[in-house]
């Protein structure tokens, strides 16, 4: 595969590219999906220092 002697390593080559494509597709689909802003979520009124 692609001139690579071991099929297993050919798959590693191809899967690396496919994984990057997956990242691109996911990033494009969710490009503007912001969820709540961290600034809006900040509310420390209920926070108490951790005990031990």
């Amino acid at each position: 595969m692609l001139g690579i002697a071991a099929a297993e390593l050919g798959w590693a080559y191809l899967l690396s590219i496919l994984a990057a494509l997956l990242c691109v597709v996911y990033g494009l689909i969710k490009f503007n999906d912001s969820g709540p802003l961290s600034e809006e979520l900040r509310d420390f009124s209920r926070w108490a220092p951790p005990g031990d």
Binding site: A19, C23, F31, P36
Partner: peptide, 23 residues
Amino acid sequence: AGSDRELNRSVLWGGIFTLGITG
């Protein structure tokens, strides 16, 4: 990150970047 948007877009750029460097 200030919101999920930064993380989502990071997946896009990060995937290309990581393949481009380590690959």
